[in-house]
Design a protein around this nucleic acid. Structure first.
Lengths: 152, 152
DNA sequence: CGTCGATTGACTGCATACATATTATATGTA
DNA sequence: TACATATAATATGTATGCAGTCAATCGACG
């Protein structure tokens, strides 16, 4: 660590640690790291979320899928590319609307998802473990409230 | 999936919205969007955080800087590239350790930071605005607690 | 003084995330 | 039918974030 000499005094002392945007970013980093520790490198957080969404509501096009889990439409294509390359989902042009690719999970995909599920739940447990049970509930409620207003 | 293995949790329990990792990601998306709305495209959240850190503790090398604000060492290089291209920071080889690049903010950089500061504070206000004052304090406390355990 | 382990920074590759443009296809309307 | 508009998917460019590799360099040790 270098010796920091104070050479510029800022008119406004900005404490980045006090900024929600900053610590949300760092919490996100923590969550991603835990995910990769527990689940491994076979599956990323985004790929897992996509797999779950596809399994729960098959017959959706890519855009519907993206909207449902909060991805960008331009991003979902690449995610599905990688899931398709692993043989976990399939893309089929819709007959009703030939612009659409209907995305469905494959048996191999279901198996991969089932294998990952326990690890993913460990991630959530570990992530929240610094909080006691009451705090966990409050944290979830406040996050939902924030999302509800900003997305709804 | 045709095995006789009972997978009870597969059919129901995968509610992504209930997973902290998932809604933290979406909160992060919200924060980034608000940032770009208020601050504009001149400066990204990461670039702003870097600028603040550089201004507050000049004389640091890139790795120290990265550690201080939670970046990856491999990422900070590109961030500083872009700040340097705008003339907002400078890189100088250290005399004590010639592997190090000492990063410092320029007058133009200080000006850019000062201009962005009000907008950045509006971001934080808007982000937390769905919560009342008590809830905001609780939210910040819980986030800090999570970070304290996971990073400390 | 020379060697070795650790550190730093540069670089590559992969995976998001988003904006924008483009292409193909649908759909509403004149 | 012809045209304008809307939508789905893709391609491109920029910006992060992390893992891994490499060379240069530093500090410590013999």
């Amino acid at each position: 660590m270098s010796s920091a000499r104070p050479d510029v005094e800022l008119s406004v002392a900005l404490d980045m640690d006090a900024m929600p945007g900053h610590y949300i970013r760092r919490l996100q980093q923590v969550a991603v790291r835990l995910f990769s520790e527990e689940v491994g490198s076979e599956l990323t957080p985004v790929q897992f979320a996509a797999l779950v969404a596809i399994a729960q509501r098959s017959g959706l096009g890519q855009a519907d899928l993206a909207a449902q889990i909060g991805y960008d439409r331009a991003t979902i294509g690449g995610v599905i590319d990688r899931l398709e390359a692993k043989g976990w989902v399939s893309r089929t042009p819709s007959r009703e609307d030939r612009r659409q690719n209907i995305v469905a999970i494959t048996p191999a995909g279901e198996q991969a998802m089932a294998q990952a599920t326990a690890a993913v739940q460990r991630v959530q447990t570990r992530f929240l473990s610094p909080l006691d049970s009451d705090e966990q509930q409050v944290f979830e409620r406040l996050c939902r409230k924030l999302l509800g207003y900003h997305l709804g």
